[in-house]
Design a protein around this nucleic acid. Structure first.
Lengths: 206, 206
DNA sequence: AGCAGTCCGGAACGACGGTTCCGTTTTCAT
DNA sequence: ATGAAAACGGAACCGTCGTTCCGGACTGCT
């Protein structure tokens, strides 16, 4: 009796992707990353398809929806950030230095990517859908912050939850700057980080 | 010889607006403010018209374009902020207290207004078009910051230009929160303000 | 009251962009 | 080599939304 190899219910399909399909999938992701980075989430599917030298139909074969495509790219982005966080954790220097290293590298990565800046800044739905891929990032950020608090370099009440808020603000500063305004995202980050440092006055003036 | 009273070339029209027109204009602005505050700049003209109990045609009689309507409301908003800045200037307390008073009151005003948060956060074109109404605000903010720097309450390199960056970040934190996320805009503002204080470390750790 | 001019209402229009559909092409196992 | 399954291309579709248009209602002056 020939038993069919028991592929678990939800698993990679028995048959691997055809060669051209695999190649095109990669081209779509590359093109989408580039076009979205330049024009933001409002870029059209046609534009992405053209940039990938493919028909729109092919895009929809690989991603059922524009939303799905953006989610996939956002998930990649957060995976990259998690990777950066991991590298910072393994890095040298004091805990505070590791923390700021991470923040600056993450900011540099996000800068110049209009779509990801928009997602960071104001796209809670996307953030929800990629929540799964964000856990690794969140965990590592928590570790970075806790260590820097313990070493006395960050204020005692600093928390990993402050980081998304800062990055969210950064996203919109970047997005505004991309349109020719703003006083510089570096300046913004410096202020925000200084607010997190130990020694910053914690009690509101007023 | 009867001389026509020389109304300057660009002036309020000789004939005042008809009573119903004036009434409806006010209703449009009220409804637009409310609908936009709740649903953000993506709210439809139909929705605004319905909320004002008027036909869309009437909207377009008063504002040639959706853009014009949003600009008008944004201009009002900045006028309000300028008013708040003026009140802070006249207020009591140290220069630093006056500055933080203004920031907090401006933040409270922007919070709960999705459209204005979006405009602050990422709508450079709108910001351009209302640039005229923004000069009063900018001037007063500069005065507030300069005084607080002089009194030693803000870091020496603080500048009025930092305020838009902070408010821009705040806009996107608020926008994200409106969708159920975020660690609290108050927390964000506190961090940002602490970064501006005198005594905040000015030299990057790394 | 009557009239001219102003203003209103809301159906219809047109542009835009995401999505679908199906004839054609490519791949791959036999 | 060959046929069937898988993938591609891109014109057409459809829903949405800003905007226009014009017949009808309303104001305000005489």
């Amino acid at each position: 009796m020939t038993t069919i190899p028991a592929t678990s219910v939800i698993d990679t399909p028995a048959r691997p992707m055809r060669a051209d399909a695999r190649r095109n999938r990669a081209r779509i992701l590359d093109a989408a990353r580039a076009v979205l980075a330049e024009h933001g989430v409002d870029a059209g599917m046609d534009e992405i398809a053209r940039s990938a030298d493919l028909g729109v139909g092919t895009l929809y074969r690989h991603f059922p929806t524009k939303e799905a495509l953006i989610d996939a790219i956002a998930a990649d982005h957060f995976a990259e950030l998690a990777e950066l966080a991991g590298r910072a954790l393994d890095g040298s220097g004091s805990p505070g230095e590791r923390f700021t290293d991470f923040i600056w590298s993450a900011a540099r990565r996000t800068r110049g990517d209009a779509a990801m800046a928009q997602v960071m800044a104001a796209n809670a739905q996307v953030l929800d859908r990629v929540a799964g891929t964000k856990v690794a990032l969140t965990e590592r950020v928590d570790l970075l912050v806790q260590a820097a608090v313990a070493s006395g370099e960050l204020r005692a009440d600093a928390s990993g939850a402050d980081v998304p808020a800062i990055m969210c603000g950064l996203g919109s500063v970047v997005a505004t700057e991309a349109l020719g305004h703003g006083a510089g995202w570096e300046r913004y980050l410096t202020l925000a980080l200084d607010g997190l440092r130990y020694g910053a006055p914690n009690v509101p003036l007023a």
